[in-house]
Design a protein around this nucleic acid. Structure first.
Length: 229
DNA sequence: CCAGACGTTGTT
DNA sequence: GTCTGG
DNA sequence: CCAGACGTTGTT
DNA sequence: GTCTGG
């Protein structure tokens, strides 16, 4: 699956890879967690190229009454995303790329959960396939959401697919990782299931290394999270 | 018809 | 055990 | 994903 | 909003 990831690649390197507009003060993130804001690349609304935006992780469907729904919508299965009521509209029109350079999986070793950091073997940044969605804060949820009624909150989810052999030792389902040659097709295809994007991906070669257990704390976002043990 | 869900993973 | 918050 | 809460009344 | 289960 993919419930935590890292993004430490500098802005200009990301710009070279993803070709987006705009300037950001992007600090290194060693432990991005659901409900936090994170950098996402999508087609600019005016139709002119791509933009980098900060969106909340955990897709809130347009019909949701509460922001907290997003906590359960952090991933979407590649196999079913086209038909699920929560995702299918976003799947048709609102796809995005999530820049990352690694992600975490946990494996139980007796009593303890040991986190592993998975990265590409070529150390290049990764692009997770994702969807984004707009949600308007309703009156009844304004207080819980911490935003005024009517505020637009934009959220995203990360697609998952079956793990390949390189994802050992955890071998959990993994994020759908796109090679650059598929970025354009993923972002713009009228029907992405018509392209080979959805099939092409888990070929990416990953390495995994056991890391410092403090990565488990959601609010912990220091470099120790990626320290091998 | 209405009510209630709407999602994912992994299971020593 | 299950849900919420980060 | 994991960690941490999981409840109520009434108010220095 | 739309689908599923009863």
């Amino acid at each position: 699956m993919c419930g935590r990831y890292t993004i430490t690649t500098p802005l200009e390197s990301l710009r070279n890879l993803f070709d987006f507009e705009g300037n950001f003060n992007l600090g290194a993130r060693y432990n991005v967690a659901p409900t936090q804001n994170a950098a996402v690349v999508r087609n600019a609304p005016d139709g002119g190229g791509r933009e980098l935006v900060m969106l909340r992780w955990g897709l809130v469907p347009r019909w949701a009454k509460e922001l907290s729904i997003g906590s359960r919508m952090i991933n979407a299965r590649t196999e079913t995303v086209a038909s699920k009521p929560s995702f299918r509209e976003a799947y048709k029109k609102r796809r995005c790329l999530i820049p990352a350079d690694g992600y975490f999986e946990w494996k139980k070793k007796g009593e303890i959960k040991q986190p592993y950091l998975l990265r590409r073997r070529d150390d290049a940044p990764m692009a997770f396939a994702g969807l984004w969605e707009n949600w308007k804060v309703p009156e009844a949820n304004a207080e819980a959401a911490g935003q005024p009624t009517g505020t637009e909150i934009t959220t995203f989810t990360i697609l998952t697919t079956d793990a390949n052999e390189t994802a050992k030792p955890t071998h959990h389902r993994m994020p759908l990782i796109l090679e650059p040659e598929f970025f354009e097709a993923w972002l713009t295809a009228d029907d992405p299931s018509d392209t080979d994007v959805m099939l092409a991906v888990p070929a990416v070669a990953l390495s995994s290394v056991a890391v410092n257990r403090r990565v488990g704390s959601p609010r912990n976002d220091d470099p120790a999270c990626i320290e091998p043990i």
